[in-house]
Amino acid sequence: MIPLSHFMLVSAALFCIGLYAVLSKRNAIMVLIGIEFMLNAAILNFVAFSRHDKFAASGQVFALFAIVLAAAAVAVALAIILNVYKYYKTIDPTEIDQLGD
């Protein structure tokens, strides 16, 4: 059996890759992919930990909820990004800065 620490290492690595993508990518879709990495790191944690839970269920149920909600949030974010492209002809978040002082 794979020890728990390996799962935690993989998920921590996934989380850091996601965070790096979110902070460095200049494309809104790539940022969304980074967010997806971070979410999946958390979901991996939940599923791995639920192996040692007394009911072995709450972590897995949490993972299911997280997957569904992540899909909903990504659908909304993609629709918004599509709208941004319509008006700006770019999806680079650093170039879209009409708001502000």
Binding site: L32, I35, V76, A77, V84, Q98, L99
Partner: peptide, 15 residues
């Protein structure tokens, strides 16, 4: 402006 606000909000919120 509205699309920009929505994108900033959605990305920051999802992170």
């Amino acid at each position: 402006k509205q699309t920009e606000a929505a994108m900033k909000y959605a990305l920051f919120g999802s992170v």
